[in-house]
């Protein structure tokens, strides 16, 4: 009688553990392909307003900075996979390397390296919320400051993977 009870308990525990592990594995293997969007904006105090092409980005920039002019210099889209680095050419001879590392739930872990020519200006490891935006700014460009908006979207797993594609300037 006792043995039957013990067996039943062990079987139930094993089934639950297998189900839990399956759920965890399914959650961890989420999306692998990453779509990246890099906008280069020049901010200045020339009172020319917000570039219409910035759309919703303009409100966000107004919340963050006090400049009176925001002008979109370039918009680039790139696609890569976790573990593969992608480069974006930025105004002023700057280069941005982005290497997504993993998708952890709703966060995308990645490494960013910003170069001024061959010299690295900044290296950072971060987790960016899926569909979130990170802004890197500060370097001077033309008559203002260069503001780089970096957005990342993780595609759902199961879709066809492709090799990283190079970014294309909008302008």
């Amino acid at each position: 009688m006792l043995a039957w009870r013990v067996h039943l308990t062990l079987i139930a525990a094993a089934l639950i553990a297998i189900t839990a592990q399956g759920t965890a594995v399914a959650g961890g293997s989420a999306p692998q392909r990453i779509n990246l969007h890099v906008d280069s904006v020049v901010a200045s105090d020339t009172h020319e307003g917000v570039d219409k092409r910035l759309a919703g980005m303009g409100r966000r920039l107004h919340l963050l900075f006090n400049y009176s002019t925001y002008r979109l210099i370039s918009h680039q889209d790139g696609h890569t996979e976790c573990g593969q680095m992608i480069s974006f050419m930025l105004p002023g001879g700057r280069i941005l390397h982005i290497q997504p590392r993993e998708v952890d739930g709703d966060m995308i872990a990645m490494e960013l390296v910003l170069f001024q020519g061959a010299r690295p200006l900044m290296t950072t490891d971060l987790k960016l919320k899926n569909h979130g935006i990170l802004i890197v700014g500060g370097p001077r460009y033309e008559q203002g400051m260069l503001i780089i908006s970096i957005g990342a979207d993780a595609e759902q797993s199961g879709r066809t993977r492709s090799t990283p594609t190079s970014a294309v300037n909008a302008e």
């Binding site: 966000r60 200006l121 990170l134 802004i135 500060g138 370097p139």
Partner: peptide
């Protein structure tokens, strides 16, 4: 930014 959660890294020249 507390309102929309945007994070900024500022690298002055």
């Amino acid at each position: 930014e507390p309102q929309d959660g945007t994070t900024v890294i500022w690298l002055p020249d």
